[in-house]
Amino acid sequence: MARDLAIDLGTANTLVYMKGRGIVLNEPSVIALNRQTGEVLATGHEAWHMIGRTPGYIVAVRPLRGGAITDFDVTERMIRLLLQRVGVSRFTRPKVVICVPSAITEVERRAVTDAARRAGAADAQLIEQPMAAAIGAQLPIDEPVGNMVIDIGGGTSETAVISLGGIVALEAVRVGSFDIDNAIQNYVRREHGIAIGERTAEEIKVAIGSAAQTPDEVEAEVSGRDLMMGLPKTVVLTPEEIRYAIDDVVSQIVQSVVRCLAKAPAELAQDFLTRGMYLVGGGGLLRGLAERIETETQVPVRMSQMPLESVVLGAGHCIENYDALKRMFMGQRR
């Protein structure tokens, strides 16, 4: 008998929740392929370590961008491997609930469900990430009060107001942590004349990146390839530089939160002031981001206890209570 699954198919990480067992898999959404034969060489952590360090015949790719499938075949193979790793075989076909960005198009929705079905799922239902995040973050969404959740992922940032188990207002932008990494890469290339990789940019973000000034700031040395000479070169970056480099991206995220607040019914506005907004997703871990949102909206911002797992736990709760929570799935609302 197949155990039903909830999958948070994120641009950065993929998490799988198995009914009755909890989170059974948590790894980067990366797959390494042999360019010539198309064979899968590695997935997850192993493939992530290969990014930017592969010989010509290997390509390590993220098959999702902005929360949407950019390469259908590769995504299907990745989902198939994920399902195999958690014990799904051709004889045990589970029901699957997949978390997707709320802004995905009808075509993108179909791509995700088709990929899951072809990979071995008996049935595939979709749930919006901010809704799943609110369930997983233990917000009192069953009550007639305004709950606001900001989910900042690798490729999308979504803000939702939820009351009585449904979405009241929603605002999504296809901007996330990867855009912050790209902004750092571009800045270092433009201002210091050196090329750095995706992973190095991410390490800089984690080490000294911030959205607002924070105490105990330090500088960081970064090494890359000099664009003029082609030789390795090291430069020192300051937190102020990185704040400047990522300001455009951070501003887009903050503005989407402001737009969502403006869309929410006036009756719920007082709830936000007393209850605050909840930040989930890996992008929410950027230093100073909560403070920056709080300053610009004048609404308290709180960090979820499990920012990286909230979405899959919420979808997992839907799998545990599949019949009672059917109306949460996209396309099932009456």
Binding site: A12, I23, Q138, G282, G316
Partner: peptide
């Protein structure tokens, strides 16, 4: 909250061995 507590608290989060050594920090 009572119904959800069962899902969130009763099941442990399983992490893979490699994840403990190094992990990308981006959002899911």
């Amino acid at each position: 909250p009572e119904a959800r507590r069962h899902t969130v608290e009763n099941y442990p989060v399983v992490t893979s061995p490699t994840e403990e050594t190094e992990e990308p920090d981006d959002g899911a």
